[in-house]
Nucleic acid binder design. Structure first.
Lengths: 169, 169
DNA sequence: TAATGATATTTGAATCTGCAACTATTGTAA
DNA sequence: TTACAATAGTTGCAGATTCAAATATCATTA
């Protein structure tokens, strides 16, 4: 009996209906990993340079995906648009990015890394890589590939999801 | 040449040194998944009942791991201790938990779900399960197992990590 | 046991975040 | 072209979060 429950849990189908097994509950696992990495990288690598995690996310996205409108930056960074607006203001003040109106559509703003911004990113990227390497230490390369592929799919699933009946009524 | 780079990236070892490939960068993937799930679950399932994600995390941990001291709750929920203190105050006010001093160690506080708290958790757990199911839709059971196992290991890696030399001084 | 350090929690103050309302611009269609 | 709706961005404000300092208790040891 107990065996059956345990096997079911191993298969990802926990049996007791009114209790979450948090150690096997994806949102819990994801949240604690995200918090742990952000906390350490933020305090060890960013804070000494007056940068926050949110600022770093904006910088990393700009470096990876190139100049963006703020609304696209918000989507790519998972940062709320009004929060992002203020972060871009701060990054502008310290010379990391520039904010310029699109010539063809003047309600849009293009956010672009400055030379100083690019230099900061170039300095931080190897450190960020080191954190990722530490994070995945001991995992088989194949498992890491599965991990990342699954995370991409989970993200796509959530973005394409309809609100369930229970909340939509 | 390009093939070699792509194979290297597939193996989790991106080659260009000054740019992050965000779509293959674990902290980025984890953060966006965590944000997407929390945002949707929070607004659709929790907000209508006056609950926040942080409150829900506390409740879920208490239901899963039983009565806890606040400091352990902070660790288990990845919530900062002073933030947690205020969340527990709120949860106490609305009758979800009780806060009682440990008899043997009166500086400690034990946080316990009330009957009302348990009822709320029992109501929310199936919904939380439904979100997880939606999140992992289309993934092979075996891959889901790898995903969760990797996340547990990554968490352990981060918790046991020493601050790297680059940030140490 | 008195003194010192460690642990658990709370609180003050500053900062950050999110929602809603607002401005400005663009798109659409009568 | 004028009106109305949609889009991009900003800002006010209330609430949330964080860090540091304060409080209270416990542990250790001289």
């Amino acid at each position: 009996m107990l065996e059956r429950v345990e096997r079911a849990i191993d298969r990802g189908n926990p049996v007791p209906a009114t209790k979450l097994e948090l150690d096997n509950y994806l949102p819990y696992l994801v949240n604690r990993v995200g918090t742990a990495i952000a906390e350490q990288f933020g305090t060890e690598a960013l804070a000494p340079y007056g940068l926050s995690i949110a600022m770093w996310r904006v910088m990393a996205v700009l470096a990876s995906a190139g100049t963006q409108r703020q609304i696209d930056l918000a989507e790519l960074t998972s940062i709320e648009v009004s929060t992002l607006s203020r972060i871009v203001t701060r990054l502008t003040r310290i010379g990391i990015v520039t904010r310029t109106r699109s010539p063809n559509n003047t309600r849009e703003v293009e956010v672009r890394l400055t030379a100083k911004g690019n230099a900061q990113v170039a300095r931080l990227v190897p450190i960020a890589r080191a954190y990722e390497t530490a994070a995945i230490a001991g995992l088989a390369a194949q498992d890491i590939a599965v991990l990342k592929r699954c995370l991409r799919r989970v993200y796509a699933n959530m973005k394409n999801r309809q609100a369930p009946a229970v909340a939509a009524e």
